[in-house]
Amino acid sequence: MLKSAKTSRLLASPYLAWAFIFILVPLGMILYYGLTDDAGAFTLQNITYIAKPAYFKSLLLALELGVISTVICFLLAYPLGMILAGMKLGRHEFILTLFILPMWMNFLLRTLTWMTLLERKGVLNDILGLLHLPPVYIINTPAAIVIGMVYNFLPFMILPIYNSLSKIDDNVINAARDLGADPLQTFLRVTLPLSVPGIISGITMVFIPALTTFAISAMLGGSKVLLIGNVIEQEFTVAYDWHLGSGMSIILMLFILINMVISSVSDRKEAG
């Protein structure tokens, strides 16, 4: 018994070392830099900087675009999840693969492609021109960023929703029908509640990367739309102010933490 505990500890050590070096140490560094000034003295100044209009606005905008993208992802993913779950084995795997396939390519490359599609003289406007329709200027607007986020993060919403939907026992649905529920009632009172864990993890997996992104907003926003992720990136690279960058990161982490707490609470509710 003792021996096996020792072995398992030994086996776990690489993971512990990994967690320590790549999770705990960086987190500690962010907290240290975020709460100190150049002289190393404790300060909250890096945190309160968020109250400056320019910084606060970037946080609000990031939250707004994150929520919009998450909602769109959900609205697209849920019906698809239901269709897939209702399909025969084999076919749904094929369609699922189609959705995951683009993820095999580099994320930056795929976002770069959206630039070419949406550009003023891009593919989209070429097609509109052929149809004698007026061109649309989507690139470098918040809308372009939302498109990029939905495109990149949709699979993270589809997979958990599909998983939880496919786990629902057919007999539960049949029982509801037997007891006289119509399709809408069955959906609202049986299917939807049972798929909540999938929805929650889908929301978390889409909302957090959407909130923190700086690559998509820089590329599809033409650096005209400033999100909190861009602010942090600028502080670290351009302004070389690690203290302020870390302070902003702490604020962002708070929002992520809130999201995680909400999801874990609702998870526990499900379990109970």
Binding site: P53, S58, A239
Partner: peptide, 14 residues
Amino acid sequence: GDRMYNDYWMQVKS
């Protein structure tokens, strides 16, 4: 000076 330019620049960018 750098800090001042950067803060102003953030105003432009946002």
